[in-house]
């Protein structure tokens, strides 16, 4: 970001027609200037207070989960709420041993990574075709893809299940990747990004005899890094926390992801709040770690800044 300095006071003096306007109001030592500075400080203060409040609102549930997971059973439901817990680590210990967490984590990791790779590859390939290849019906195809975005996921749940079942993919890892292996949003993002690349890059490659996939893998995709990062993060977030679909198609620990495993503590005998909170905190850790490394890119992609970094 560049900071543009507004006109200097001396400049204001050299320009008679600006007397009385903002330029000359900022003469050094004028009380008005001091007032502006004070207001700027107050503004910054207010902003930080607001930010702190918002941050607290987002952090509190996490903190609350910590409190619940380590508090004594009797204190979890007391009113007013118990904000400073007593440290009883037994529930977490119980939660850790009662289920094969390593297996669940492995399942989730495989599903998430496979989906990310698949969404990136399909997104880049389809985005490239829709952006740079000329073929009949290209725009129609693109419109159809966009229209698919408007179909609510609930509407495809049963067809998805039927197809997955017929493919014999129930209770498998693949069955959790396949329905989301390609993503219209990713295709759209890559298409838009490839369209903004100078056409001369593609043309220079063509003249050099560079094949399209080499151009795609060595030039277009590396240059579309913001798109790659955005798609990766969004896919990571949605697959890591996927719940409904894996809950429907998995049983036991064979292909079940960690998020669904949490529901083990919601049984017929009620919800084991302390165990579920402790386990939820553990499953959340990877997300927190990834996002703390990638928050710069997340902010950029949400703000629509696709500039190269």
């Amino acid at each position: 970001m560049t900071i543009t300095r507004r006109s200097e006071p001396t400049e204001g003096r050299h320009r008679p027609y600006t007397i009385g306007d903002a330029a000359s109001d900022r003469l050094p030592g004028s009380s008005f200037a001091a007032g502006t500075r004070l207001r700027a400080h107050v503004g910054t203060g207010v902003r930080y207070i607001l930010l702190t409040v918002v941050a607290a609102m987002f952090l509190f549930p996490i903190y609350w989960a910590v409190v619940v997971s380590v508090d004594h059973r009797s204190q979890v439901f007391t009113l007013p709420p118990h904000l400073v817990p007593s440290f009883d680590l037994n529930p977490i210990r119980r939660a850790l041993v009662v289920l094969p967490w390593a297996k669940y984590f492995l399942n989730t990791t495989i599903i998430t990574l496979a989906t990310i790779v698949s969404v990136l590859v399909t997104g880049a390939l389809a985005g490239y075709s829709l952006a740079l290849r000329e073929f009949r019906g290209r725009e129609v195809l693109f419109a159809v893809l966009l229209a698919a975005l408007m179909v609510p996921p609930e509407a495809t749940l049963i067809p998805d299940y039927v197809i997955t079942a017929r493919l014999g993919l129930l209770n498998t890892l693949a069955g959790q990747v396949a329905p989301v292996a390609a993503n219209v949003y990713a295709i759209f993002l890559f298409r838009q990004f490839f369209k903004t690349l100078p056409p001369s890059l593609w043309e220079a490659s063509q003249l050099d005899g560079v094949s399209w996939y080499r151009y795609l893998s060595r030039v277009a995709v590396p240059m579309a890094r913001p798109a790659v990062v955005t798609v990766t993060l969004l896919t990571f977030a949605s697959q890591w926390s996927a719940f409904e679909w894996p809950l429907i198609i998995t049983q036991g620990s064979r292909a079940r992801p960690v998020e669904v495993a949490l529901s083990f503590f919601q049984g017929f005998d009620g919800t084991h709040w302390r165990e579920i909170s402790g386990a939820a905190l553990i499953t959340m850790l990877p997300i927190l770690i990834v996002f703390s490394f990638a928050h710069k890119y997340i902010v950029k992609s949400v703000a629509g800044d696709t500039g190269d970094t």
């Binding site: 890059l201 220079a204 003249l207 050099d208």
Partner: peptide, 18 residues
């Protein structure tokens, strides 16, 4: 284009930025 064995210097250079 690849089979013509010509090289082009583009107006805006068209260097691969990455």
């Amino acid at each position: 284009p690849a089979d013509r064995d010509v090289a082009m210097v583009f107006q805006r250079y068209a260097l691969y930025p990455n």
